[in-house]
Write a protein that binds this DNA or RNA. Structure first.
Lengths: 339, 339
DNA sequence: CTGAAAGCGCTTACAG
DNA sequence: CTGAAAGCGCTTACAG
């Protein structure tokens, strides 16, 4: 049986397609009686409108595209996707996913402009486009909202956290617990994709402001356990080792805790460790951390994308969402050494 | 500047829209010279074809929908999404996401038929539709491929793992290491969404086949640490406690290991623990497990969905993908007790 | 190799 | 409150 069209429904109900269209979408100017007839006819014919035809007629696709870097399966992507979905679905919007993983995918996406006219707006996450890609984005003529990249001139709006302030709050929290000797483990600088390590800046700010003793800042070049092991070994071998360790991410922090314990250092009794991100798995594992509201970030980004497309006044184009220290099991008050 | 249409390009290049259409899609029957002219004109006008208009004209949306239960951010959804994307993107197909979380979202999706005519095929994961929902699915008139639900009559094809065989292989592996006293911790039966615990069946099969000593099978009602704690306490308090523990999922297994260690039981020295799933975080944590090829499952499901839509011969409508025992740090040969 | 024209299935000003 | 008709921007049999 051929799929029913709006004309079939109109015929069955004895009205015009105009009336069917309005009746089904619940618009005004349709007699209640007529509406009932239409609904019945539609149900009988198993009719549902073609979003494609509607999109062509109205000029809106009712879709938002999300472009993420590297992978679709990371915790952050998962959380923002939930948030985006939370705001999109009730407004009858769909979510379409794009990944810019390897070189090939990136250039395919940008050169072929895969998202163009395929969605009403584009949300970009974790992405540092190069010059050529920025040009391509500019030619996309759709609103672009970037996530956690506040300096993104190519975007019409952004939703981010304040990395500097977040890390400062971690240091403050630990200082309030009586810690005075600190160290920081950050990521190696990958200018192309991320820019500077702002969390390191936050650490440095707070340490100097509070007159704390910075016992060193380290950089994890590879995400290998080996590298973390040597950093931890170096830290605990210091004459006056730090009692508080601030770490760039939860993933790194979890590794650090693992290495500490394996070397017989108790955490938090001997050394407090705080991560950054608040990813669910880390919270499950009891890691103290600075949480970023990932789901909320997604939800807000989606709403802004929608507002931008609908030319609504977006009062705040560059939203900064607050981070929050979550004290769990890897931090405690600074105890006098017992070793 | 108004968005350029195919007519604009045709005019600029001095040809008909037919020629533009064929030239841009790289089809035959276009003179090389003409093609060049068209490409130039398109570039100058910053033209890219409207997927919506193309979809309406061709009757194909070039989109595949994925419907998942509960959340978009779980590891399994993440992995299959990657796999689906792997096969879709090179074939110029897009991926659109649907979540059937709470009651409201479920009924919205099914009653309003949100995916209808919005994608060429639907992939369903982790889902147990009720009767009403099955009816709705049947009326969707698009190919439906289910993931890890082989008994899904509403689906035209499925890609799954063999849970029974997978758990059997876990028992065999541990038996080969010399273990003879076993126990199993499974999930509480949630008939509606999952059906029976087939992994439990696999455990029972193998234990009886190999004449092993089943010291008990347990059920985790809540995913709370409390409940796992009492189960573990019960197990280690047995007169002849098991030396091998097979657990329904990696998530549960990780909790079990945590509880064991906290109670002073060494793992794997005192007791071997094996999970199920092979989720990345568990592998990172060194959990021995039975891995399901989640990404591959997604990739295959997407290809089948495409083939079904294109009416290609799908040789195997109900694919079973192999699981694999991954021996990591939580299992070892059965040692004589030293406690 | 190329063109003129119909058609995909909706929405929406314009009339009545 | 309802209708007839144009239009959205493509693709594609049918001719030439």
């Amino acid at each position: 049986m051929k799929k029913a069209t709006i004309a079939d429904v109109a015929e069955a109900a004895g009205v015009s397609t105009y009336t069917v269209s309005r009746a089904l979408r619940g618009l005004k100017h349709v007699n209640e009686e007529t509406r009932k007839k239409v609904l019945e006819a539609a149900k009988k014919l198993n009719y549902s409108a073609s979003p494609t035809a509607a999109a062509l007629a109205t000029g809106r696709t009712n879709r938002i595209a999300l472009l993420v870097r590297e992978n679709l399966s990371g915790w952050f992507t998962g959380e923002i996707t939930e948030g985006i979905y939370d705001t999109l679905f009730p407004q009858e919007y769909d979510l379409i996913l794009y990944r810019a993983g390897n070189e090939n995918e990136r250039s395919e996406f940008f050169r072929r402009r895969r998202a163009n006219q395929n969605a009403d707006a584009l949300i970009i996450s974790g992405f540092g486009p190069n010059e050529e890609e920025r040009d391509a984005l500019a030619k996309l003529d759709m609103p672009i909202v970037s996530i956690n990249a506040s300096h993104a001139e190519y975007a019409h709006a952004s939703v981010s956290i304040h990395d500097i302030a977040g890390e400062e709050s971690a240091v403050r929290y630990l200082a309030a617990l009586g810690h005075t000797r600190f160290a920081y483990i950050g990521r190696a600088n990958r200018t192309y994709t991320w820019g500077d390590d702002e969390r390191l800046l936050g650490y440095q700010n707070a340490v100097s402001e509070l007159h704390l003793n910075n016992r060193g800042t380290f950089e994890l070049n590879e995400e290998s356990a080996e590298n973390m092991r040597s950093i931890i070994a170096e830290i605990i071998a210091m004459p006056d080792p730090p009692t508080a360790l601030c770490i760039w991410s939860d993933t790194y922090a979890l590794k650090a805790v693992h290495e500490l314990r394996r070397m017989g250092i108790r955490c938090p009794e001997d050394i407090s460790v705080i991560g950054f991100d608040g990813q669910p798995a880390a919270l499950d594992a009891g890691l103290s951390t600075v949480q970023q509201p990932a789901r909320e970030i997604g939800a807000q980004a989606a709403q802004i994308a929608l507002d931008l497309f609908n030319k609504k006044d977006v009062t705040e184009n560059h939203l900064i969402l607050p981070t929050r220290v979550i004290p769990l099991d890897t931090t405690s008050t600074c105890l006098p050494p017992t070793r």
